[in-house]
Write a protein that binds this DNA or RNA. Structure first.
Lengths: 198, 198
DNA sequence: CTCGTTTTATGATTAAAATCATAAAACCGA
DNA sequence: TCGGTTTTATGATTTTAATCATAAAACGAG
């Protein structure tokens, strides 16, 4: 997260996106740095028969879509507003200027990318070598650390739908539903009127 | 890749690793920055029943294992020498000092991490939503761009074993062998005495 | 050059998750 | 508050890649 005053100093503009609105599309070249003011954004891919894979979900104060910006490569995924959202957009050239003139920003970005790479490494190994229950639990435990799950008297409320969990772990909804039920029976999770707690 | 003179100026030391030797292990805290002088290194995970998932393969002049260094987190995977290798090791504190004193290094690192994140994003979507043939082909095409595949009169020689391709795509050897055969029949690849060309 | 290991290969069988079908409950917008 | 959509749920069936079995070819260390 970069201070919004600094971003605005370099010419960042606020823009609103409605729920379901596309921010950028797979295959396009990057033009801006994006940082969320409020709302929720997902980055995802769709395969030929419409099946979705969610690369990540981002919340307020987080940025997204930086890698292609540094590489002059096309976006490998789409970004869509999951909720009505407000986003700060800083044009690429201004962003680069800001980087040059503010060395400490680089460290921040390195940490952000390192964090995301860490998540991807863990989930990649999970997805390709573990069974559904293990995958779901790993995603949830990661979520507690990095997504904005809130704790109440029942534990952490996992505010993802079964479908979202499926799209993040490469599983189908029915499989996720069954995995969650099994995990509840094993005592790893709680299900309180359909909501999942850990 | 950071100039080896610079690394040595900050106290980096050369170290040799034999084929099969472990450089660092999953779960350990990072102590050094690693940059390959010669040889080949893989980073991988093993699940409970010994199944391997290769996070990445790295060659001369490439660095590896940086993310946990920036996050003070445990390594999410092991790193092992695939061939006899020579590596430059720079202790963490010296590495951080080097970063502070050389702003341009940060940009290099950002680009490296962005590149790796790009690969992980593409492969994550592949692994979770596409059929074996698609996955294998995507890995190969990525390899042409980023691993050191060499071109000769038959095209690019894919110098990965079927097992390695399996461990990089989350497939079993037999499945990879069959996928490669099918891709050859479709004219996407050539197999010339067991070697794969694209 | 030889012997053990690794790699590639192929066929048969199995297991596990995807798919298909259906429905109740919950949520949301008009 | 009504009606449509989304989410959760469950059972039956199918498909696909994993698994199991076996072997030839190639490679590599001594």
């Amino acid at each position: 997260m970069i201070a919004s005053e600094l971003l605005e100093k370099y010419g960042a503009l606020k823009k609103s996106f409605e729920k379901g609105e596309i921010i950028f599309e797979e295959g396009n070249l990057p033009t801006h740095y994006y940082q969320i003011i409020s709302g929720e954004i997902k980055m995802s891919n769709y395969n030929d028969d419409g099946r979705e894979f969610i690369q990540g979900i981002f919340y307020k104060e987080q940025s997204f879509g930086e890698p292609p910006l540094f590489l002059n490569q096309k976006y490998p995924a789409n970004s869509i507003a999951v909720e009505d959202s407000k986003i700060l957009l800083l044009p690429k050239s201004n962003f680069m200027k800001m980087l040059e003139e503010n060395a400490s920003i680089s460290i921040k970005i390195i940490e952000t990318l390192a964090q995301r790479l860490y998540y991807k490494s863990v989930m990649a190994a999970e997805i390709s070598t573990h069974e559904p229950e293990h995958r779901v639990l790993k995603l949830i435990d990661h979520g507690i650390a990095y997504f904005n799950f809130k704790k109440d008297q029942n534990g952490f409320l996992i505010n993802f739908t079964r479908q979202q969990i499926g799209d993040l772990t490469g599983l189908r909804v029915e499989t996720v539903i069954r995995a969650i039920k099994t995990l509840e029976k094993k005592g790893e999770l709680k299900i309180i009127n359909r909501k999942v707690y850990r």
